[in-house]
Design a protein around this nucleic acid. Sequence first.
RNA 1: GUCCCCAUCGUCUAGCCUGGCCUAGGACGCCGGCCUUUCAAGCCGGCAACACGGGUUCGAAUCCCGUUGGGGACGCCA
Length: 471
Amino acid sequence: MNEVRVRFAPSPTGFLHIGGVRTALFNWLFARHEGGTFILRIEDTDRDRSTDDAIQVILDGLKWTGLNWDEGPFRQTDRLELYRERAMDLLKRKLAYWCICTPDELEARRKEAQAKGESIKYDGRCRHRGVSEPAEPAALRFLTPQEGQTIVNDRIKGQIVFDNTVMDDLIILRSNGYPTYNFSVVVDDGLMNITHVIRGDDHVNNTPRQVPLFSAMGFSVPQFAHLPMILGSDKARLSKRHGATSVLAYKEMGYLPEALINYLVRLGWSHGDQEIFSIQEMVEFFDFKQVQASAAVFNPEKLRWVNAQYIRNSDPKQVADVLMPFLQSAGYDDAVLARIPGGAEALIPPLRERSETLLDLVQGAVPYLSEPMTMDEDAAKKHLTLSIAPSLQAFADQVEAEADFSKEVLEGILHGIIERQGLKMGKVAQPLRVALTGRTVSPGIYEVMALLGKERSLQRIRSGLERTMNA
RNA sequence: GUCCCCAUCGUCUAGCCUGGCCUAGGACGCCGGCCUUUCAAGCCGGCAACACGGGUUCGAAUCCCGUUGGGGACGCCA
């Protein structure tokens, strides 16, 4: 029984986007499910567009998601000698030939063919030129079989049949000596003993070009699984136009990595009606049989919902930990947090029912962290009126006189006032809320007061009282 | 243009392989209600789909063909 070996092979020409993470995730899930090996390989053979920064961003993004790799990261530019050797071997065996057509010429011919409505595949004019020692820089082309069919048994799409006549003699070595994607991929997948190639289905058409290369170099052909694309709301391929594309942008927007992963795994994969999965469950249940063959539209609303589920159901301590950097960058340091009885962790339970992201949590925490508090003028005008002043006054006096600041005591005091004045709870609670938080929306009054502590609660009610006098 | 893939509520999907259990289920969102100190959360309910046309069959969302629609690929990018 062969050990499963899969790889995620991003190219460092940009950041790690959502689609890339999904591809990495499915590779990782399959590897973990099978007890196999997950390899990270950086495909940086486009030396014009690949950058070290981009590699770092990909690594950072992947680390944030928690998709840990077992081998690598390998860089193809560290392995150039390997590709060259293999290419020269193909040349020696007459399975490859030098092509002296220039990129400009090829481009012109393609345009012309397109205009005439003809096939735009390479016409093979260097095939029989027999160039042995090119004087000029030349590219090396693979002599692609033109007869018969190439059949791919895709784990997701099923059987796919290609007529070999549509296949080009693809370039395997550029005139600058660098290998092209379709070649380096095959050499690496072969050399690294990759058993399953799991990638986006934009690569389906590359598969019949790669299969003959595996065979020509004596590698066994891996199994393929082509994942459906992720689309934007306009059903076009997900891109910058659809908002954040870098995973790290989601980190900054206050999403938890587990939530993003959970959302992404359900984009194209399912396990009955289950929506929320622990990582262990995903690994246990993952199966290509349940992977969708069709593309999926990325739905930010649902991502928010999933994130909310995680924020609500995670341990408050852990949420507080990931929230810290957000609080810091909002200008709230440890000294500010120390004002809250119970610290940052105490903020989580009352606030998380109303928060879908960590950013929402920060916004919700503002009234308890900021001093002085910002008062919503409209709210003050509406609720801090003269008629409510006696109730607020009585409440403040009684709370101050009471040593115990527990919810039960506060509740008793407030209910007593309501009964005596013959008021409804809402009549008093809203003004109190506005006085305490400066807002009309907040957690329950007693939770708010617990976060504020006795001193600040009383001080805020009193300054609210002052406003009722001036109203 | 050529090649390839895909097609169930607005979106993610279950069901399809192994036709009948489907009056097509769940989730997000939306609408309404309950709860209620606000807003949420929670609970209850509602709207909403088998792209179309032919077959095959006693019977088709499920199998076959076609049409239409969508996506992808056709680089000395990956």
